[in-house]
Design a protein around this nucleic acid. Structure first.
Length: 829
DNA sequence: GCTTTCGCTGTACC
DNA sequence: ACTGGTACAGCGAAAGC
């Protein structure tokens, strides 16, 4: 039979020591289909350059003859072939070694240690990746499939009878790309969330579980109250509730199960409580229970249903662009779908009234609902990531950007006839981690001042455009000595450091990494243009996927876990970036502008007597002189901007400025306003002060405002939540060497039996103390503790530091401010 | 016993 | 363990006088 099919989930299984891929997806009428297919399994032995044909033949014979015993089975090589391939851009002769089952690739590779062999490659690829590479059956695009239907067949270990919830099993005979439009494929989604009475996984009981799907909302609980609540269903006990969860899940037949933090909390908790209650959590299409793998950060897999932990994807794909201060569900949902959580205060079980429970149920349902909505928002991006990286949703939704870059490379290398480089081993990784640091970007020291009429330019995709233009990569790196066998015009010399005069050399013959990057940047441009004409979420997602890939390419080459690790390319990239931005700075000064500030790829210029058109002409001229795909673009024109000094020094602070454009929109960087570890009072005050100064061009009204706030603070008129300071626990509490206020408070919370987890934001405020020498941490208290806030601390450590170097620009120095403050204090008392 | 320096820690910029 | 370096700032303990 022949039909249209879209792959969603990939996995592999074994029958009689042979590996097969199992692809779950949908056909064009929405039926759930499972394809069974297989592909050749092989790896490569790259031969040393000097090895002659005769020797090659004998090596191949030796490889053909390899046999190993494993569990009373004999494992052998199926066949070998000699190929002309490329490895890291160089021509090589390589033996393609076919084997029966990829789980033996490591053991067989070990046996092939003949002196004629340079190295073994591609023995470390996952079966699913091999399959997608070999058969070109990428996720989430439509295919035309021809094959035979399996019905109660024993051929594949009875797989078709084990998977009850699959409508059709097909052994693939032919599979090729279909013309069917695949832009808006929408799988069936179920979002879930649990509430428990203990934080540690499995320790307490699950009180309730909520499920949300298209047209379906439900809360399952065994905490019965004497009231019927919409969408809430009561059960006898935890076990009954868990059974009902499985039942509803099966009835909904989702393609994807999604939760927020569900790899680390909801799914493992469900599994643990199901085991305790002797309930089979048979969520898999084959009735199997969720499996966990991945040690430190486990990933929960369900056979046939893709489990997506949305948090991980949000972290990788969006966190960079999010304004929200935490990556919690409430903050993220607020920003991305315009809807946050309802406020809910947790109480102890015994203290809860019927009404409290009712609110708890609503809260639980709301979490699933937000997760569901957030998933819908993220889906176009996730789908495009999966299509572009050509890896299954399960991994793409969890992979970091370096894996994404690497997957993109792996799935595109065949176009260059390249053999794929291996992952570094443990030894190699630890060696790489000890490497010397290389110099990074250039940052221009600003002169503190209020400036008028500013233009800001920045380079588009600066580092990627340098990598591509100058061909900086692992396969084009020639070493740190001038190559003797090449003509001057065929290689590039890069000065890495002004200090020790070291140089790196790169070939000018284009390598695959820079070529792929050029393509990525081009595609990003294309899709961005297309999106402007036709604004669909998918086009936006596609353009975004390529943008993120380009941005991550620089970090990838410097990442110790990368297959194509090349810190020399990273060092050359930053070195070249310093040269070009400095050149733009000097050209701008020659053209009559004044360079105020510059960081990495951007430059702020004081227009002086220049018009906007003259600024744009200057931009045009710069661009006409830039090589390759490098491009400088207009960021914006600004009416005013302010740069300040560092806290102590007389010199201008880097990475800290505020601008206002002609529409009155502010752009604030680095100031306490944008830092979450400062109290709201200081942040809001600073924001107002900056706004007034930038809007009006002088400090008068800002100064009045600041005085008002100080007065309010001193007369204890400030609400305590505006004084709460928050800092994140970035590692387990036990690993802290320094006893900072937030660590002290976190330890106090643990003692009080409050949930404290790595990654948590710890809130506290500073209270008065009789002991004049008391350390800050001894005066730190939880926000709900009944203490008087320390006026002196907030004035001297929060309010004044937030504004004093701004006023300093107007000659109002810190001593003036303190005197001002003291006079006020005297007047107030 | 006071001041200065320095390591730890967190956060932001690009 | 899951991109890189640059920069600022607070806190607390050690070092310096």
């Amino acid at each position: 039979m022949e039909f249209e099919f879209i792959p969603i989930d990939y996995d592999y299984f074994e029958v009689n020591d042979r590996t097969f891929v199992r692809i779950i997806g949908r056909n064009s009428v929405g039926k759930r289909v499972c394809l069974i297919d297989d592909c050749d399994v092989y790896f490569w032995a790259i031969l040393k350059e000097s090895v002659g044909e005769k020797k090659i033949k004998s090596v191949m014979e030796k490889i053909d003859a390899i046999k190993i015993r494993e569990n009373s089975k004999t494992i052998k090589v199926l066949k070998t072939q000699l190929h002309d391939k490329k490895f890291l851009g160089k021509d090589v002769k390589a033996i393609k070694i076919f084997i029966e089952n990829c789980k033996y690739d490591g053991k067989l590779a070990e046996k092939i240690n003949f002196s004629e062999i340079e190295s073994i490659k591609e023995h470390d690829l996952a079966y699913v990746t091999r399959y997608i590479l070999e058969k070109k059956v990428a996720p989430l695009s439509w295919y035309r499939v021809g094959g035979s239907v399996l019905e109660n067949s024993s051929e594949f270990g009875g797989i078709d009878s084990a998977f009850e919830d699959v409508d059709l099993f097909v052994r693939v005979e032919k599979i090729e790309k279909s013309n069917k439009e695949n832009a808006n494929f929408m799988p069936k989604i179920v979002a879930f969330d649990i509430e428990t009475d203990e934080f540690d996984v499995g320790k307490g009981k699950i009180l309730m579980i909520s499920l949300v799907s298209d047209g379906f909302r439900k809360v399952l609980t065994w905490k019965k109250i004497n009231e019927k609540v919409e969408n809430v269903e009561y059960f006898k006990d935890e076990a009954d509730m868990l059974e009902a969860f499985v039942k509803y899940f099966k009835k909904l037949q989702p393609d994807i199960l999604t939760g927020y933090f569900s790899d680390g909390f909801d799914l493992p908790y469900l599994k643990a409580r199901a085991e305790v209650n002797k309930v089979k959590l048979s969520l898999g299409l084959d009735e199997s229970v969720p499996r966990f793998s991945g040690g430190m950060s486990p990933r929960g897999r369900i056979n046939g249903v893709v489990h997506v932990d949305l948090f991980k994807f949000i972290d990788v794909a969006y966190s960079q662009y999010l304004q929200s201060e935490t990556l919690g569900l409430s903050d993220v949902a607020n920003e991305l779908v315009g809807e946050g959580k309802k406020d809910y205060e947790f109480k102890h079980d015994s203290k809860m009234s019927s009404n409290d429970w009712k609110k708890f149920f609503e809260y639980n349902l709301q979490d699933s609902l937000l997760t569901y909505k957030l998933f819908m928002k993220a889906w176009p991006d996730m789908m495009e990531f999966s299509r572009v990286m050509q890896e299954p949703l399960f991994s793409v939704s969890r992979d970091g950007m370096s894996s994404n870059v690497e997957n993109y490379i792996i799935h595109n290398l065949f176009r260059y006839d390249e053999i794929i480089e291996s992952k570094p081993g443990h030894h190699e990784i630890s060696k790489r981690r000890e490497r010397e640091r290389y110099e990074g970007a250039f940052v221009l020291q600003p002169t503190p001042k209020l400036y008028e009429n500013i233009v800001m330019f920045d380079f588009t995709s600066y580092w990627p455009s340098i990598i591509s233009t100058f061909n900086l990569s692992r396969s084009t790196f020639l070493g740190d000595k001038k190559p003797k066998n090449l003509k001057e015009k065929d290689f590039l010399e890069v000065d890495i450091s002004e200090k020790n005069k070291s140089k790196f050399y790169f070939s000018k013959a284009k390598g695959f990494f820079p070529l792929m990057l050029e393509e990525i940047i081009k595609k990003r441009k294309e899709y961005k243009e297309e999106y402007k004409k036709n604004s669909t979420p998918i086009l936006k997602a596609r353009s975004n996927a390529f943008k993120l890939l380009a941005n991550a390419s620089y970090g990838y080459q410097g990442f110790f876990g990368a297959r194509y690790y090349c810190p020399q390319a990273s060092a050359a990239t930053t070195a070249i970036s310093r040269d070009f931005i400095k050149e733009v700075i000097s050209k701008s000064e020659k053209a009559g502008f004044k360079a105020i500030y510059s960081d990495t790829d951007s430059i702020a210029l004081e227009m002086k007597t220049k018009s906007k058109n003259q600024a744009l002409d200057f931009l045009k001229k710069i661009n006409s002189e830039l090589p390759g795909i490098m491009e400088l673009e207009l960021e914006d024109f600004y009416k005013r901007g302010i740069w300040v000094t560092t806290r102590k020094g007389e010199f201008g602070a880097k990475k800290k400025y505020a601008l206002i454009n002609e529409n009155g929109k502010m752009k604030i960087r680095g100031f306490e306003t944008v830092r979450r570890d400062w109290c709201t009072l200081a942040r809001e005050l600073q924001n107002q002060v900056l706004f007034r100064i930038l809007k009006e061009g002088d400090e008068k009204s800002a100064l009045d405002y600041a005085k008002q706030v100080i007065k309010k603070l001193e007369s204890r008129d400030v609400e305590k939540d505006k004084l709460v300071i928050r800092a994140q626990l970035k590692k387990p509490l036990s690993e802290y060497v320094a006893n900072t206020p937030h660590v002290t408070i976190a330890r106090k919370m643990v003692k009080a039996g409050m949930p404290v987890d790595q990654g948590m934001l710890i809130s506290y405020f500073i209270a008065e103390s009789k002991d004049k020498k008391a350390l800050t941490r001894d005066r730190a208290f939880l926000p709900d503790e009944d203490k008087l806030y320390d006026i002196k601390y907030y004035l001297e450590k929060q309010i004044l530091p937030a504004v004093e170097n701004i006023f300093m620009v107007f000659g109002i120095d810190s001593e003036d401010l303190v005197r001002e403050k003291k006079q006020k204090t005297l007047g107030d008392f």
